[in-house]
Amino acid sequence: MSGINIKKLALELNLSAATVSRALRDSYEISTETKQKVWAMAKKLNYEPNPSASNLRSQKSKTIAVIIPEVANNFFSQAINGIEEIARTRDYHVLIYQTHENSETEIAFIQRLLSGRVDGILISISKETDDNQLFKEIIKDIPVIFFDRVFKDIDAVKITTDDYESTYNATLHLIDCGCKKIAYLMGLSNLETGKKRIDGYTAALNDNDIAYKNELIMADCTDDDENYQQIKKLLITEKPDGIISSIEELALPCYYACKDLNLNIPADVKIISFSNLKTAPLLNPSLTTITQPAFEMGKEAATILFKILDKKYFESNETLILKSTLIKRGSTRCE
Rank of each mutant, 00 (worst) to 15 (best):
Lys37Ser: 07
Glu12Leu: 12
Pro49Trp: 06
Asn317Phe: 00
Gly116Cys: 02
Phe135Cys: 04
Lys180Asn: 15
Ile96Tyr: 00
Thr19His: 03
Phe151Arg: 02
Phe135Ala: 01
Ala87Gly: 05
Ile327Thr: 08
Cys334Arg: 11
Asp153Ala: 09
Ile182Gln: 01
Ala204Pro: 01
Leu250Phe: 08
Thr237Glu: 15
Leu205Met: 02
Ser275Lys: 08
Thr167Asn: 14
Ile159Val: 07
Lys35Val: 09
Gln78Asn: 13
Thr160Gly: 09
Glu106Cys: 03
Gln111Cys: 06
Gly200Gln: 05
Leu263Tyr: 13
Lys232Met: 14
Asn14His: 13
Asn284Cys: 11
Val269His: 08
Asp162Met: 03
Phe306Val: 00
Ala294Lys: 01
Ile96Pro: 00
Ser246Trp: 07
Tyr313Phe: 11
Ile67Glu: 05
Asn50Gly: 00
Ile290Met: 12
Glu12Asn: 15
Asn206Gln: 15
Arg149Gly: 06
Ile308Asp: 04
Glu137Arg: 09
Tyr313Gln: 06
Gly200Met: 10
Ser2Gln: 12
Asn132Lys: 14
Ser124Cys: 10
Asp241Gln: 09
Lys60Cys: 05
Glu165Tyr: 10
Ala108Met: 15
Glu33Trp: 05
Tyr228Phe: 15
Ile139Leu: 09
Ala211Gly: 05
Thr63Met: 14
Asp224Glu: 13
Ile198Asn: 09
Asn264Arg: 10
Thr237Lys: 15
Pro285Tyr: 07
Pro240Thr: 05
Phe314Leu: 06
Lys37Pro: 03
Arg197Pro: 04
Leu252Phe: 13
Glu296Pro: 06
Tyr212Pro: 04
Ile83Tyr: 00
Arg329Leu: 04
Leu15Ile: 06
Cys254Met: 05
Lys213Tyr: 09
Cys254Lys: 07
Arg112Cys: 03
Ser166Gly: 14
Tyr47Ser: 03
Glu315Gln: 12
Glu85Asp: 12
Ile145Glu: 02
Arg88Asn: 15
Ala10Arg: 05
Lys7Pro: 03
Ala53Lys: 05
Glu335Ala: 12
Lys62Tyr: 14
Val20Lys: 04
Tyr256Ala: 14
Arg25Cys: 08
Pro143Arg: 04
Thr32Glu: 15
Tyr92Met: 01
Asp220Arg: 13
